[in-house]
Write a protein that binds this DNA or RNA. Structure first.
Length: 949
RNA sequence: GCCGGGGUUCCCGAGCGGUCAAAGGGGGUGGACUCAAGAUCCUCUGCGUAAAGCUUCGCAGGUUCGAAUCCUGCCCCCGGCACCA
């Protein structure tokens, strides 16, 4: 009999060309347009909307392939899916292009959007394109301005003259989050400190809620950790040190009030306003000025690096210790950061490393006020700062010695509180969000500066404040060059006034776009709260880890802030976040230098050390030149193949290695898959006993698929739909199944599973099946659960396959012991006493019995009463005991079921003979009259011995 | 230094108390088919043996009848934060 498995002589090439036609049919049928239907659960699937560069890259393709599979799955399961797309279309690249090459950012952006849109559409993602939004559309940014005015009225938005981060190359200020290692996150250029009038959003008002909210949402641990770090909550005390002979008070923040008695000096940041005040006109002024000048010109990054070298100047003044009344010197030190806490610290050299270094250098007394062991010596000198929690000692005031850690902190804080010189407080690392940018291509800040009235918000009815077109791109803020924009009458007093020329950080745009998607065409209001509340929160949000702290904090903040404006009632925007892994590709790599090089070096020796280069996977990037163009891949293999490859080659969150051979092999799978409907529809056999098995398998696979998808385990889902299914069908055919009715049934369900990752091919299938409409617009009918009969069919085949497996494994070895090829085999099923021992043991242990105790049970067994006692007990301990725990649930059920292994295998013996290339296969019960092999000893329930002859 | 995430067989990666010598893929190997190549299908891919046994999931211990999986300590890698008071 010939094997009629699939894959031989493929009748049909899988052609990517048809994909575009199917995409058009989807559009015509409007099946991806979101609806709100009664009695349907909603599902909001979202990807981070892209910046419209001209080209789609693999990162986009991966991101959207993941999101699209989820959206399609949920749609197929009967959800009202909202799956929108748009463009984060404000931002500097377009403005820089305008500056460098001429043209207008608007035209450049629109052109890029058109081109990337085409490429995205070619992938066949199931977006509701009607909802497309773009940040640079006045209909959208009008609402940025609306919110800004509301925030301004509430005091959440404010203007302040403050030192800010200035990027020299981008000619604009940056938020703290946008400064990475002292450099601009976008251009990597140097960042300086500059004093300017700038707009801020007071995100700190929401800091606590932002921390607490993290416990309520399914974000990956690393993202939560990143956000907690960035928010930087730290509990401690604010303590007031009065300045001797002065009315001034220095406020310090500390997390260690328990060390207060060890404070032997106070240190101010050089920029601390009191520093100048204290030294003014004294001998110390010059030294302070020097330190100030040195420190303040440095970018924060360089400054922190220089902090290792402790520098300081005395102020010549003294502070009063709040509890002891002692006079302690006030110093000015380079290691204190003006912007953190209060910009001043109480220095405790005995129990803080920095203070210790400083005190050593300037010969300031070091006091021990904690001991690290309860019985430690309170007089022991301090060789280094002992910074751990300890027991308080040497307190000049009664009632503190002996207190440990938190108790000490509490006691000191209480004491301070009663004197009105301190209180418990929480300090945050996050600082108000600096939102103004001195650039053109962003949302104009809707503010008018009037000489008489001051800062006046643009009245609501005048919104949007649109970007003018009569601007020049050169140096500085282009908006400053538009007279028509600049000159405006004050809305309050009607006198000539001047418009604010700063625009908003583009992260403002991305902070609420997902809300706008729910009601994107509304011009009356930012979104109808009813619709918005229906679709929000986002159920599944997929994007890159690089947005873990900026976008994802700002968006959470905006959601809460807009909620408090009464615009909706959601606390958190995103229920579940998935950060997809990087797309990597091979790049030249030098093992000895540990360096990756551009593909230009492939085949050449290492430019540094001359040793030969090997290859290593590295993130696809322009600079390495190891990018792969999605466009070319789609052209060559079709969108379905690219999607299949991307989903199958790694879990969504794992890094993924691009491989030319792997995508080629996925394409082969697609070609094979393409032939499936014809092949199954060609079946012409009748009903067979294998039909029950196949049907059961179909049900099983559908269930597994759903479980995988529900956990966003897309790799596993694709594996089931595109790999495991073929194996199952091959097995069915191999076992003689060829029932056309069943073939149709399989295809009915299978097409749905296939449509999740390779939707175009699924439509081809659907058509071949002669079905109405489009599979992508059809819900998947759920199959009934597996019946007992079906379960037993599954079990018998499982037994068969496991017997075949072990028979194959042994065969070669056996034949070495025989004189030639094996002619026949005897399958020796385990004797009945083994099965009853197994059943008893399973029952015993499942009722909570310990395996050790079961041994006495074994010795009670009938078979163990005679001379075989030792053998039986030994068998239990050595063989059965470990095996009892190895059987999975299905096997346990099977063992208890009374399945007759002899019968099941006898029925299948001719198939076994055929598979093993034997003339005959006989099945006998071990230790029975038929068993002449004497080889039943090694047998186990479900694992018979096989004796070749 | 602190906070997160990791270290699995030739490679990539799943597993996270017994179904584990450990999924899946890649690579390698042998075979079927073919005039041939490609494609496809099947076998093998820790040592070992007529099924045993042994060794293996970063290292060293521990808990357990049983550990890749749980606990303790250590080493290393990645990401973030960082004289943050």
């Amino acid at each position: 009999m010939s094997r009629k498995t699939f894959g031989v002589n493929m009748a049909k090439e899988y052609t990517p060309v048809d994909e575009v036609a199917w995409q058009q049919k989807w559009v015509d049928a409007k099946i991806f347009e979101s609806q709100i239907r009664s009695n349907r659960p909603k599902f909001y699937c979202l990807e981070m909307y892209p910046y419209p560069s001209g080209k789609m890259h693999m990162g986009h393709v991966r991101n959207y392939s993941i999101g699209d599979a989820v959206a399609r799955y949920k749609r197929m399961m009967g959800f009202d899916v909202l799956y929108p797309i748009g463009f984060d279309s404000f931002g500097m690249p377009a403005e820089n292009a305008a500056k460098d090459e001429g043209g207008h950012p608007y035209d450049i952006t629109e052109r890029n959007m058109a081109s990337i849109t085409k490429q995205i559409k070619r992938m066949g993602f199931s977006y509701d394109w009607n909802r497309q939004l773009k940040s640079h559309d006045p209909r959208y940014y009008k609402w940025n301005q609306y919110f800004f005015i509301k925030f301004f009225e509430k005091g959440l938005a404010y203007r302040e003259h403050a030192p800010v981060n200035w990027c020299v190359q981008c000619e604009t200020v940056l938020a703290n989050e946008q400064v990475k290692a002292g450099r601009c996150w976008r251009c990597n250029g140097p960042v300086n400190q500059k004093e300017m009038n700038q707009w801020f959003l007071d995100i700190n008002q929401y800091a606590q809620e932002l921390v607490d909210g993290l416990d309520t949402i399914a974000f990956p641990e690393n993202v939560k950790s990143l956000q907690r770090d960035w928010l930087g909550r730290s509990e401690g005390a604010q303590i007031s040190f009065k300045v001797a002979d002065s009315e001034s008070v220095i406020e310090v923040f500390t997390t260690r009030p328990d060390t207060l008695f060890g404070s032997t000096f106070v240190t101010l940041a050089p920029e601390h306003p009191m520093a100048e005040e204290l030294v003014k006109g004294t001998d110390y002024e010059e030294a302070w000025k020097e330190l100030y000048d040195e420190v303040s010109v440095l970018a924060e990054f360089d400054r922190i690096r220089n902090m290792k070298k402790k520098k300081g100047v005395p102020s010549g003044r003294f502070a009063i210790h709040p509890l002891t009344g002692e006079k302690i010197p006030i110093w000015i030190g380079n290691f204190v950061i003006a912007s953190y806490g209060t910009g001043a610290v109480m220095a405790v050299p005995g129990h803080d490393e920095r203070d210790f270094d400083f005190a050593k250098k300037f010969d300031i007394p070091i006091k021990r006020v904690l001991i690290m062991k309860e019985d430690g010596d309170p007089q022991a000198p301090l060789e280094t700062a002992e910074t751990e929690y300890g027991w308080m000692v040497n307190s000049p005031i009664e009632g503190f010695d002996g207190l440990y850690g938190e108790d000490g902190k509490r006691a000191i804080t209480e004491a301070l509180k009663s004197k009105g010189l301190g209180q418990q407080t929480i300090n945050w690392k996050i600082r108000p969000w600096l939102v103004s940018r001195q650039r053109y291509w962003g949302t104009p800040i809707p503010i008018i500066h009037c000489d008489g009235c001051g800062v006046v918000p643009v009245p609501e009815q005048d919104l949007p404040v649109e970007l003018p077109t009569d601007v020049e791109f050169g140096h500085g803020n282009p908006l400053e060059t538009s007279e028509s924009f600049l000159n405006v009458d004050c809305p309050k007093c009607s006198q000539p006034a001047r418009r604010e020329t700063d625009t908003m950080d583009t992260f403002v745009d991305s902070s609420w776009y997902f809300m706008r998607y729910t009601d994107p065409l509304n011009d009356e209001i930012c979104f109808d709260p009813k619709i918005m509340n229906h679709f929000m929160n986002v159920d599944f949000y997929c994007g890159g880890i690089e947005h873990a702290q900026m976008h994802l904090i700002y968006a959470r903040f905006y959601t809460k802030a807009l909620r408090d404006l009464g615009l909706h009632s959601n606390d958190e925007p995103f229920n579940e976040l998935l950060c997809q892994g990087m797309v990597n590709a091979p790049a030249p790599w030098c093992e000895s230098c540990q360096l990756t090089f551009s593909v230009a070096h492939a085949g050449s020796p290492c430019p540094h050390c001359d040793s030969p280069l090997t290859e290593r996977s590295a993130k696809m990037s322009k600079s390495l030149g190891n990018t792969v163009s999605p466009e070319h891949m789609v052209e060559k293999y079709g969108a379905d193949t690219v999607r299949l490859f991307i989903l199958f080659s790694a879990n969504p969150t794992a890094g993924m290695d691009w491989s030319d051979s792997a995508i080629a092999s996925n394409h082969r799978v697609m070609m094979q898959m393409a032939t499936m409907p014809e092949r199954l529809l060609e079946w012409s056999g009748g009903v067979s006993s294998m039909d029950t098995w196949m049907l059961a398998r179909l049900k099983q696979r559908c269930t597994e698929f759903q479980q995988a998808m529900d956990h966003f385990d897309l790799r596993r889902a694709v594996e089931i739909s595109h790999y495991d299914f073929i194996k199952d069908i091959n097995w069915y055919i191999r076992r003689g199944g060829e029932n056309p009715e069943l073939g149709t049934k399989i295809l009915d369900s299978w097409t749905h599973l296939v449509s999740v990752s390779t939707p175009h091919m699924a439509e081809e299938w659907w058509q071949t099946l002669g079905k109405e409409g489009l599979v992508c617009g059809t819900e998947m009918p759920l199959l009934p659960s597996i019946t007992d009969e079906e379960q037993s069919a599954l079990d018998c085949e499982t037994l068969l396959r496991s017997v075949l497996d072990s028979a194959r494994r042994i065969k070669d070895v056996a034949e070495r012991h025989l004189d030639g090829p094996a002619q026949s085999a005897i399958i020796v099923v385990s004797p009945t006493w083994k099965r009853s021992m197994a059943v008893d043991a399973l029952n015993f242990i499942e009722q909570g019995g310990s395996p050790k105790q079961f041994a006495s049970h074994v010795s009670q067994m009938e078979i163990a009463q005679g001379e075989r006692k030792g053998e039986i007990i030994g068998y239990w301990g050595k063989k059965m005991l470990p095996q009892v725990f190895k059987w999975d649930d299905d096997s346990r059920i099977l063992i208890r079921s009374g399945l007759d292994e002899v019968e099941a295998l006898t029925q299948r013996s001719s198939f076994i003979a055929q598979e093993l290339g034997l003339q005959s296969v006989k099945v006998v019960l071990g230790e029975s009259a038929e068993d002449e092999t004497g080889r039943a000893g090694g047998s186990m329930p479900l694992a018979p011995s096989i004796v070749y002859a």
